[in-house]
Write a protein that binds this DNA or RNA. Sequence first.
DNA 1: GATACCATTTTGGGATACCAAGATGGTATC
DNA 2: GATACCATCTTGGTATCCCAAAATGGTATC
Lengths: 221, 221
Amino acid sequence: MSQMQSVEKQLREMILGLEIGPGEKLTERWIESRFGASRTPVRAALLRLETEGLVGRDGRGWTVSPINLAELEQIAVYREAVEVAALRLTCALADRSGVDVIEAMLESCDGNTAREEWHRVGMDFHIELARLSGNEFLFRAVRDAMTRLSRARWLEVRDEAALARAWAEHRAILAATRLGDADEAARQLSAHIVGSRYRLVTSLANDRRGLRARGFAVVAA
Amino acid sequence: MSQMQSVEKQLREMILGLEIGPGEKLTERWIESRFGASRTPVRAALLRLETEGLVGRDGRGWTVSPINLAELEQIAVYREAVEVAALRLTCALADRSGVDVIEAMLESCDGNTAREEWHRVGMDFHIELARLSGNEFLFRAVRDAMTRLSRARWLEVRDEAALARAWAEHRAILAATRLGDADEAARQLSAHIVGSRYRLVTSLANDRRGLRARGFAVVAA
DNA sequence: GATACCATTTTGGGATACCAAGATGGTATC
DNA sequence: GATACCATCTTGGTATCCCAAAATGGTATC
């Protein structure tokens, strides 16, 4: 694999994994030395990550995008539009066996599962569900939206009850989809996204002080 | 303005304006000499245009993306989801005076208007309409989708009747939006997009031979 | 002590040099 | 004439160099 993709991948993981905090300044030179690459692949990586919304320009320099509560709310509305559209397409498919694969994915999480894994599967649920629609654009839209939400979801204070609730909602969505009941599936998915958004934004707004103390830039709604 | 943005802008215009045909191979060196820039800005431009879907990698090299009829169909579905969502948001706004600005934009086209202008206003109608929603993500989704559709719409054989029809549909959408009638506005917009897609794909499929003769790569649905 | 000013450093943007891999084209062989 | 093979050229990827501008930090002035 070329080093360019490696820099991009590693840098993305550091940002998504909060090893580099939201709001931190980045210099091309630092990335260069940190990953042992030269500036050309570093710039390519930054340009790509910029379109993903993970880094942004700060005047002349680069900054890891802060967590923006207003943006999170807008993404939730966006997600609802594209995810529901994708789900309706999937419900209209003759072969909806893909839902079983996703169901199995959910089942793979139990009491022994690491938090990272719950986090990942929780996002992949939505991404893979969108992929079933067969529409490349809806799929990418969901994938990109989830990438943008990723750090915020990671920061969210999630308790066992919230996790169990989310998983139950996921299963309800799959059940309706399996039956091809588009309206019911769409209703369930909308409610799930709206509820998620509420809990996410509430959690972050409450914990804002704590997040700032950890050096994370959090922009108000 | 930096030269980088200039290369990107000029190259994008050449591609969208079909001065470089769909399917044509691009070399960084050619772009470099064509615009008098060095490879650094050229690479940045190509990376950006890649995320816009206007150029793609062809093994080791770069290619102007072909017109892909299957992709056009998928974009239409995608558009419908995001445009309708945006329009429903707009209908729920207290201040919908923005529709008047868009209406005026439509009025600016008459018998003396150049074809380029009709083309541009036809796209801007949808982009500006989405912007009214206030949701940055829905707006960008529509803008990017229209950019991808741009070349195809340019190739479409459009007659006076089709243009008049499209404008009438645009006005109907605005009228319902002005009244805040979200369901009616959504219905009108959906019908408009579905109709547009049908006429576009049909036109291109029929003219495929002619387009290939002009050296344009057109991939079947 | 605060502040205006200037030298120095650092930074991102651009240009150029170099390389390995792939495309090209000619040639020798059958 | 077709084909296998090899020298050459071209290409994208990477590294390095240069530059203008912005940030930095120290200093002199009030």
